[in-house]
Amino acid sequence: MTDQATQNQTVNYTAMQINQEVKRTLRKERINAAIRYGVLLLTGLIMLYPLAWMVSAAFKPNYEIFTSMSLIPKEFSWDGFINGWKTGTEYTFARFFLNTFAYVIPKVILTVISSTIVAFGFARFDIPFKKFWFTTLIATILLPQSVLLIPQYLMFREMGMLDSYMPLYLPMAFATQGFFVFMLIQFLRGLPTDMEEAAMIDGCNSFQLLWYIVVPILKPAIISVALFQFMWSVNDFLGPLIYISSVEKYPIALALKLSIDVTEGAQWNEILAMASIAIVPSIVVFLIAQNYFIEGVTAGGVKG
């Protein structure tokens, strides 16, 4: 009897000890997590502050903008948006939005088509001096954009394309953005060739192979290319600045600068309001496209 009792006691005692240890561990993990997330949250907020400031300043009257760090406007007003949209020119801001899309959309489409074809060629075909061509491709990535500005400008002047959107998107039809070609080549190299071989046996020629098999599998990579190109092009300032001279053809990037130029004391609330609107397309496009990044690529099709 006594033996039994002692044993029970020991069992209970150990159970209690274990319980305590579990509690201690859990508490420690909670504290660790709190510290981790605290630091992350703080860093995130610091990084987001300029963006938040821009949006909040758009609602402030002009005189308040540079006098306080606060994100909450003392006097809330829509004036920045209303006047900003009218702009100092004969056009509304909607015009500049349309102008932007008028060259960004062809640019994205041409980039995707040409880069995919060139990348497919590099990744899957034996071409003479392939290494040399590939090195050339990489070299164009490393070449600073500004080096090309003057020769390109002269070229487009000779072709009579100044003050049109052609110089902005026409080069994309020739897979000139080596970075995207490189990105797609790397993606293709990581894909097993079995599916393409199966398709060849099924009767595909090279273009059918590209269209029916490679493009669908490459979709996530192609969407990232389109996304990058879209965001970079919307943000592009230098290109339009050099080639577009008439105000009616100005894209957003130049239009924002316009407001700073033409008025003597810049209406910062208007500029910031329009800047806030200008980033909306990029954010929307990103949110729509991000699901495709997550989508599995070859899951199930190939088990290796």
């Binding site: 071989e197 098999i213 669908p216 599998i217 690529v297 899951a299 199930g300 190939v302």
Partner: peptide, 20 residues
């Protein structure tokens, strides 16, 4: 002859099904 003209069909180790 190209693979498609040889009158053959092939089964691959990795199945090689078209994932989409």
């Amino acid at each position: 002859l190209a693979p498609k003209d040889r009158g053959i069909a092939m089964v691959f180790q990795n199945y090689a099904l078209y994932p989409h």
